[in-house]
């Protein structure tokens, strides 16, 4: 593979894996939420907010993919030649968010699924449930940080 293809593999991994994490997480929350709505349709707004939370991993993945695509010239007007080692550097950069995005999306979904149970009984405690979910998201944010720092550190 040439440099550019390796870099694009990185972009694909970031978008695909982090996106899968979000999709699974959102799916888990959605299942619980639908169960709650069968009892109490007025909680739709609250549950929708909770369901949106595991979506950030996918956004971080998309963001990474976009930055890589822009850097290697797939999007935009610049044409850049990417050496094989630069290509690998882009691939490495994508890994933190790809891996942590997948796992944190899923586990955030699980925490939020329990939060749905929480608001079924005590809707006023939603804030605390969100804080628990944010604890999981922290590691996706850190992974994004590592990814972005590596990306910015690559000499072109």
């Amino acid at each position: 593979m040439e440099g550019i293809e390796i870099a694009l593999l990185g972009a694909a991994l970031a978008v695909g894996f982090a996106g899968s994490g979000s999709a699974i997480g959102i799916g888990i929350v959605g299942q619980s939420a639908a169960g709650l709505i069968s009892e109490d349709p007025d909680k739709f707004g609250q549950t929708l907010l909770l369901q949106a939370l595991p979506g950030t991993q996918g956004i971080y993945g998309l963001l990474t993919g976009f930055l890589i695509m822009q850097n290697v010239g797939v999007i935009g007007d610049e044409t850049v030649t990417i050496t094989t080692s630069q290509g690998y550097a882009f691939l490495m950069a994508s890994l933190p968010i790809a891996i942590a995005g997948l796992s944190s999306g899923i586990y955030q979904g699980r925490v939020l699924s329990s939060t749905i149970n929480l608001i079924a009984k005590r809707p006023e405690e939603m804030g605390k449930g969100i804080v628990y979910a944010v604890m999981v998201e922290t590691y996706a944010v850190f992974a994004l940080l590592a990814t972005v720092l590596i990306l910015f550190g690559i000499d072109l």
Binding site: I59, L63, L67, G76, T138, V141, F142, V148
Partner: peptide, 27 residues
């Protein structure tokens, strides 16, 4: 202390997501 790096990451994320939207629009 390291936990505060999220300020940077989130700040960047909101700007770059905006850029992604603009770029998609550009296409």
């Amino acid at each position: 202390v390291l936990s505060y790096s999220r300020l940077f990451a989130l700040g960047l994320a909101s700007i770059v997501i905006g850029m992604v939207i603009n770029a998609v629009g550009d296409l």
